[in-house]
Design a protein around this nucleic acid. Structure first.
Lengths: 237, 237
DNA sequence: TCAAAAGTGTTATTGTTACACCCATGC
DNA sequence: GCATGGGTGTAACAATAACACTTTTGA
């Protein structure tokens, strides 16, 4: 920023946003992918994303792509910036710097056409993580981006209340535990988990309601406290 | 990335890297700032940084600026990407997307001229954090960037071995504790801290040597294990 | 001998784990 | 009744915090 030149006279890059959209479905952590209709990597799957417009903020671009490519409203997800990838050769078309975002949502539906994203769907992350190269792998450097997104989500569950981003507005302790088990791919003791999250001051706010989704005794419903800092943290293994 | 247009035909941005370079000096967490010699914000302090070259990776640009503006070698610091700032109006000269990096080092010296950075020096972060606006504040949106960098450093001390990035290759437990106290601005019980870090499996590797910098009984010297994941974590207050 | 910093011991308290057990519902 | 998941009790264990105390140096 101390360079004397005017930015207009400087080497320019295309700036894109790419999204790692995660949700939990049937006990599996899933990511939204789109099939590419044009080269390069035509026919391959990739993360949704697109170029930032001239007067558009980065986060605004991320929300716009979320709507255009995934049909998802701003309110349906929790969005945060992940990391920026900018190696000169990462896009065969030229220099593209990609600012990536992580979006989490509860039980998100596959987009139903009528948009850029007629070919978009949620797939378990496990396959993509296990095969980061090869014909079924994601295009560009998107395997790295996905890995970064999943690792961020896993890490943030430990010391923040991030898990609730995968839950609907009202949820039971069992549903929340299911999120942790799916994201970490780990079995958790229901009794201890229940105590941990209900004791963490200000993390869960009871609504007073009960539900009986699924068998067994009806469970109390909770709402998430938006400003949750888990203390003590919930540590993995 | 699914946009059919060629990047060369797309709206372009200037891409910069800006650096939050932190070190601990005399018990104070300090940041490297440079005085701007040109408009905008001429005469004001700012974080070191500059534009990314056409065929240069982002991290490579960060290391280059570190050398040019701060006279710091790659080996002298620990570098990690922080966050990307790209609001359309953040630079009055035009659209500039800034990828920011956090660099930590042990007892770094003020750069001694002969470079871009004849006006660079380390200053305590406390003043900048306390006065994020006004005539003595950092230029551009650099107050936000600094705040993000300091918060990242503080958070990472808790659950990783990040604190050793502020220490020389060999250090005593007392020096390491000094880092934690400076970064967190908090007093820590020496006895308990000693046990915690020496018990954390594989975190500190004893060299067998002892030193007597400072008064008192000589302390054992340790080297950091590069791949340290603190378990259990060292939690603040 | 004294101050200063390193490092160990001890104890009360808190958090974690594993697992037994009771509760409330649908079938 | 029985299966299913919700939720509490409990006891062994691990980590934490507070602080007394010993060790080893320089002045």
């Amino acid at each position: 920023m101390t360079n004397p030149a005017d930015p207009a006279a400087l080497p320019q890059c295309a700036v894109a946003v790419d999204l790692v959209v995660l949700t939990v479905r049937e006990g599996q952590l899933c990511v939204l992918t789109v099939r590419r209709g044009i080269p390069p990597f035509r026919g391959r799957f990739a993360l949704p994303g697109g170029f930032v417009l001239p007067d558009e903020g980065l986060e605004a671009a991320a929300y716009r792509e979320l709507a255009e490519e995934a049909g998802l409203a701003r309110e349906a997800v929790t969005l945060e910036q992940l990391r920026t990838f900018g190696e000169p050769k990462r896009d065969p078309r030229g220099r593209v710097v990609s600012v990536t975002y992580l979006a989490l949502g509860a039980g998100l539906p596959d987009p139903l056409g009528g948009s850029d994203a007629s070919s978009a769907q949620f797939e378990p992350v496990s396959g993509y993580l296990a095969h980061p190269a090869g014909p079924t792998a994601l295009a560009f450097d998107h395997p790295m981006i996905l890995a970064a997104g999943v690792e961020r989500a896993r890490a943030k569950l430990e010391y923040t209340g991030y898990g609730v981003a995968f839950c609907p507005p009202e949820f039971t302790v069992g549903e929340l535990r299911g999120v942790y088990e799916s994201v970490w791919d780990l079995a958790i003791d229901p009794a201890n988990f229940h105590r941990k999250v209900t004791n963490a001051a200000g993390f869960l706010v009871p609504t007073g309601e009960r539900t009986s989704r699924g068998g067994g005794r009806p469970a109390a419903l909770y709402r998430a406290d938006p400003a949750a800092v888990l203390h003590p943290p919930i540590l993995r293994g």
